[in-house]
């Protein structure tokens, strides 16, 4: 457990910052919600001036934008983007820092298997992401309840809220895979941000042109908020697709990491 706790300690501060950033984005937007619902018809008229393709690209549905969960679903388009950046940075950085910081010699010359090293690091990242989501969800839940005027379903809220964690899992696994494949990552951001944005742009373009197949390739579209609000559940087909992607990425990460040569630092 020593590697696990060391990583928890090392990423503690940055995780607190991410919790604050994600919570701040959500809380500020949720506090604006009563303003949007004050004069629904005027706001609807204003939003309907935006072409439907653009509204779809932004995840903005006029059918339920004025409900708390519809508003939350729209807001989550951006929360997911930030959350994905956190998850992929963590998944990549927690592994690649040993290479970039040239500390692999220190760590891997200790009496510990590589399986244990990778398991400890990925578990620590997972726990940090889970902690992020617990604090973020509780903070958002409190504010959402306060600003909500209609009936409030805790289940629907947490189903929407948990999509952050589910999408983060995808980027956590992808980050781990990138960390073991790409040699000597000097800047984690230079790898993670373009990747996250590439998936985001694909999802935006897919929504813009109305191509539903794009949902199969980008985690930003695995969870449709309109569906969650209407059915109070996820579309399990996409949950399974994501689970398979994660499993493949993690298994591949272990296989590559276990065989990888650690070249001398210079």
């Amino acid at each position: 457990m020593n590697i696990f706790w060391r990583e928890i300690k090392a990423y503690r501060k940055s995780t607190i910052i991410w919790v604050l950033v994600l919570s701040a984005i959500t809380i500020v937007f949720l506090l604006l919600y009563p303003g949007f619902t004050k004069d629904v018809e005027a706001t609807r008229k204003m939003l309907s001036g935006i072409p439907a393709a653009y509204r779809n690209a932004l995840g903005l549905s006029l059918d339920n934008f004025f409900t708390i969960f519809g508003f939350l679903g729209y807001l989550f388009t951006f929360v997911l983007l930030a959350g994905a950046a956190q998850a992929m940075s963590l998944g990549t950085g927690i592994i690649s820092k040993e290479d970039s910081g040239k500390t692999s010699d220190f760590l891997l010359s200790k009496p510990v298997t590589r399986t244990k090293v990778l398991t400890s690091k990925l578990s620590a990242a997972l726990v940090l992401l889970a902690a992020t989501n617990i604090f973020f969800s509780l903070a958002s839940y409190g504010v959402a309840r306060v600003v909500s005027t209609a009936n409030f379903s805790a289940k629907t809220f947490f189903l929407i809220s948990a999509t952050l964690f589910l999408v983060q899992l995808f980027f956590w696994a992808l980050g781990a895979l990138f960390a073991v494949i790409i040699p000597k990552i000097k800047s984690v951001i230079s790898v993670t941000l373009p990747t996250v944005f590439a998936f985001f742009i694909v999802s935006t373009i897919g929504a813009f042109i109305g191509n539903d197949n794009v949902r199969l390739v980008t985690p930003f579209k695995f969870y449709d908020y309109q569906y969650i609000i209407a059915h109070n559940t996820y579309e399990w087909k996409y949950v399974i697709i994501e689970a398979v992607c994660i499993a493949v990425a993690i298994v591949a990460s272990f296989i590559i990491y276990l065989k990888k040569d650690v070249r001398a630092a210079s």
Binding site: T103, S109, K110, P111
Partner: peptide
């Protein structure tokens, strides 16, 4: 084996 090995590389890098 590494329980009983002490290693000092030519260049040292730590956290």
């Amino acid at each position: 084996i590494k329980q009983e090995i002490g290693y000092l590389p030519s260049e040292v890098f730590y956290y």
